[in-house]
Design a protein around this nucleic acid. Sequence first.
RNA 1: GCCACCCUAGCUCAGCUGGUAGAGCAACUGAUUCGUAAUCAGUAGGUCGAGGGUUCGAGUCCCUUGGGUGGCUCCA
Length: 636
Amino acid sequence: MIRITLPDGTTKDVEKGTTPKQIAESIGAGLARQAVAGRVNGEMVDLARPIEEDARVEIITLNSEEGLELYRHSAAHLMAHAVKSLFGRDVQVTIGPAIENGFYYDFYSENHTFTPEEFEQIEARMAELAKADHPIVREEVSREEAIRLFSDMGEDYKVELIRDLDQPTVSLYRQGDFVDLCRGPHLPSTGHLKAFKLTSVAGAYWRGDEKNAMLQRIYATAFPDKKELKRYLQRLEEARKRDHRKLGRELDLFSFSEEAGAGLVIWHPKGALLRTLIEDFERREHLKRGYDIVMGPQILRTDLWKTSGHYENYRENMYFTEVDEQSYGIKPMNCLAHMLIYKSKMRSYRDLPQRYFELGTVHRHEKSGVLHGLLRVRGFTQDDAHILCTPDQLDGEIKGVLRFVQDVMAIFGFEYEMEISTRPEKSIGSDEDWERATRALMSALDDSGLPYEINEGDGAFYGPKIDIKLKDALDRRWQCATIQCDFTLPERFDLTYVGADGEKHRPVMVHRVILGAIERFIGVLIEHYAGNFPLWIAPVQAIVLNVTDNQAEYAEKVHQTLLEAGIRVKKDLRNEKLGFKIREAQVEKIPYMLVIGDREMAEGTVAPRFRDGKNLEPMSPEEFVAFVNSECREYH
RNA sequence: GCCACCCUAGCUCAGCUGGUAGAGCAACUGAUUCGUAAUCAGUAGGUCGAGGGUUCGAGUCCCUUGGGUGGCUCCA
C-alpha cells in the first residue's frame, strides 16, 4: 500500500500502482468525468500513469489553466495526426505546443503548401479521428530505438530533436497509427476533443532561427465545448472591429500612402489634433516633474554617429543623406543632441540631475515584414528623455520615472505588464556598474508593488532595462514605456561633472520613454477606447445639430460661442433629419451632440446628448462650457 | 528580410473553370423643413496596385515590382 495526500490535506491509502484516474473516481464521478491529468508530487502525468510510492496527488480538470493547456496540446497532436493521415510522407512533423488562446503545429514539406482552403478538410479529418476515440497511449523507449523509429518514418526533425535530448529514454505518445515524440501528459483518448478550429497558416523558422529552414505553422484553437469555441470566435470578431487601422480610416485620423512610402504615417486633421492634445499633455506632465524641454536637429553629421557607436551598431536601420560632400545621418534616436547639450558647458554635481525631454521624431529603417499600422512604423515621435545624474541619484531617478509611468497609465486606464532585462553575454561596462543599475531598477519595481518578470540576459549591450508592455485589441503585446540605464554614451562622449571633491566624475545616464512612440501609443489607445476617446482628448468634443433651418442662425451663434470658449466643436446645419445627423455624429463617436430645436432656441439653451444615447438636461452654452471644462480637469 | 495569402469606384465587397467591369454606402443634383442611429428620386465615378509576358483575347494564367494582412526573425 502507498499513501497519497490530496490538496485539501486528506490522505488515502491505496494499492501501489493506483492511477490518478482511479483516485479521481474514488473521490467522485463528477471529478472523474472532468479529470484530464494528474499532478503527482508536482509533476503533471497522464491519468493512466500508475503511482508507485507515497505521493501528493492532485487531479487536473479542464476548468484549470493547466487542464486547458493540456487539452490544447492534445488537440495539436490530433491536428498533426490528421495532417499525417492526409498527406503522409509529403509532410514532416516538428513541434506543436499549446499557446495563449490555442495551439499551433509546425510542419515541414518540400512539395506541399498549406492553404486556408484545406482547413475544412483537416478539421474534418480531425473530427473523424476524434470520433474514433483512439486511446492516447504513452510508451517509453530508448533513445536509439526512438531515433530508429522516426528515421524509418522519414521524420528528420524528430530525429534531430531526439539526438539533442540528453537522456537515455524518451516518451512517445501513440494514437491510432500516429506516434509523436512528446513529454506529455495527454488526454486519455482523442474522443475527449470536442471543439477545435484552424485559424491561420504562417511561416516559422525551425527552432526560431532565421538561418534554419522555413516551416509551415498552422495556428488553431480548441475549447472544451462548441459553445465556448463560438464565444471565443465572436470575441475575436469584436476585437477586429476595434482594430486601430480600421478605426483610423473610419474616424479619419490617419492614413498610409503607397506613394509616400511604407511605414510613414500621414496624420489627418482629427488625428493630428488628437496627437497634439497628447503631446501638450506630455509637455505639462514633464514640466511638472522637473524635466527641461529641449530640441535637436533631424539630421546630424555622420561622424557624430560614429562617436556614439550607432554607425557601428545601428547603421542598417539608419537613413543617410549627403550634401556638399558632407554625410549626415537622419536621427534614429534622440540622444545625440542631448549629449551635446550636456557637454555645452561645465557641469557641477549641484546641477544634477539634468533631465532633457524631447518629443523627438526619429526614422528607422525597419524590415518591411514587421511594419504594422501605427504600431510599427518607420518614422515616429518618441516622448524621449535622457536623465544625467550622479550614481547616488540613480535610485531616486528610476523610482521617479516608474511613478511617472504608473501615473500616466492610470490616467488612460491601461493595464500593463512589466519586465526587467538583465546583463546579456555580449555587453560592456563594469560588473559594479551593472550590479548597481540592475539593483536600482529592481528596487524601483519592488517599491512599485507591481508584479514583474525577469528576462535574464535580455538587456541592451549598454545596460539593463525595464520594459512596460500594453496589449492591443487582439492581445498582442507592444512595448511602450521603457527605462534603460546606459553606461556607454557618457563614456563615449566623455561626459563629466565636478563633484564636491573638486574632481571630475562620470555621470550616469538613464534613457526613458513614457508613452514610447506617440504613433504606437495612439494605435493602442484607439483600440483601448474602441475609438470612444474620453472628452479631454476627443478631437471633436461636441457637434451642434439643428432640427430645422429655422434654428440655423441661433445654432451658428452657439457654435461660435463654444468655439471661442475653447471647446473643440463642429456644426451640422445641413437640411437633414435630426435622426440622420445624430447617426452620423454617433458613427464619428463624437462625445456630445448639442441638439437645438425651437424649444432650445426659445430658452437660449442646447440639449446635450451623450454618445451612449443618454440626454443631459438642456443648459445654456456657457453652462455647457463649464461642464466640459470640469469634465476635462481631472483626466478621465 | 523570410513564408503564405491579398490588392476591382472614396469605403465595404460581387465578378464560375480567360471572352473587353457590377452592387451597397459615400459624393454630386433636385425635392423634402422632418425632435434623438439612415427621407425619396436622379447623376457621375474604375487604364481592375504598377510593369512585362503567354494568348485571337487577361480583372481572371506566368514573371518582376510596390503596398497590405497573418506569422517568423528582429525590435537600439
